Simulated assay, not measured.
Amino acid sequence: MADPTTPVTELRTERLLLRQWRPEDRAPFAALNDDPGVMEHFPGRLTREASDAMADRIEAFLAEHGWGLWATEVLETGEFIGFVGLSIPRFEEHFTPCVEIGWRLARSSWGRGYAPEAARAALAHAFGPLGLDEVVAMTIPANDRSQSVMRKIGMARDESADFDHPLIAEGDPTRRHVLYRVSRGSWPGAGTATQK
């Protein structure tokens, strides 16, 4: 029987490798998902079980599509620092269906420009090999750090598109979200990654 999985594309930037997940990524991923600083703008921290379930979903998506939320490591050290990549939201909203760009990195890696560096590589893949016309990003209004990354990679806020995230409970302070967009025609960053 043929293998139903698609080979996972790897992306390489000057300092980072975006790759398939490995079993040894699970423990540091669970640690960052339990970090109150990393999870400040999410409904809550994740247990190890919930973190592993999220990694399972990410790996299944990568296996099906060949792209997704890549495990991200620092080339110089081989350290796993989280994920950066592309996904398809699991909910319906006025802007879906769509492809979303997202990232979640360990606090120890913040402030080094890793998120925009890796995100530019993911956008290059989205607008190049994948041939997408648009990519979106979303977060809560108070998440200035993520919105800063969105602007750095050429995205612009669509102020008419704010929404209540349907997978977050009513009354939760993280339910209200802002939406950023970038189109292939407006994206300034060609040639920022190499595909492996």
Rank of each mutant, 00 (worst) to 15 (best):
G171V: 03
L86G: 05
P141W: 01
G111R: 08
L105M: 12
A161T: 06
W103G: 02
G171L: 00
L167F: 04
A169E: 14
R181C: 03
D3E: 12
N33V: 14
R19V: 14
L75Q: 11
V178C: 07
A126C: 04
G191C: 07
R181M: 02
H177R: 02
Y114I: 04
A156E: 08
A193F: 00
A119K: 01
T192G: 06
V8A: 03
P7G: 10
A161M: 08
E79C: 06
E79M: 07
S160T: 15
L167P: 06
R120E: 03
R19Y: 11
T77A: 03
D52N: 11
E134G: 00
E73K: 01
R176S: 09
S146G: 09
G85H: 01
F29N: 07
W103P: 04
R184C: 07
G37W: 10
G82W: 06
D172L: 09
F42I: 07
K196E: 15
G189K: 01
R145H: 06
W67R: 00
L132T: 06
E64I: 08
L32W: 09
A115Y: 03
M1G: 15
R26N: 14
S51M: 09
L32M: 15
R145M: 10
E76M: 06
L62P: 06
L123K: 00
R45N: 12
P36N: 14
H41M: 14
L86R: 05
R120S: 05
S160L: 10
Q20W: 05
R112A: 12
V149N: 00
R57S: 15
R45W: 07
A193T: 10
S109M: 03
F61R: 07
R22T: 13
E117N: 04
A118T: 11
R107V: 15
R120Y: 01
G44F: 09
E93T: 10
D52G: 05
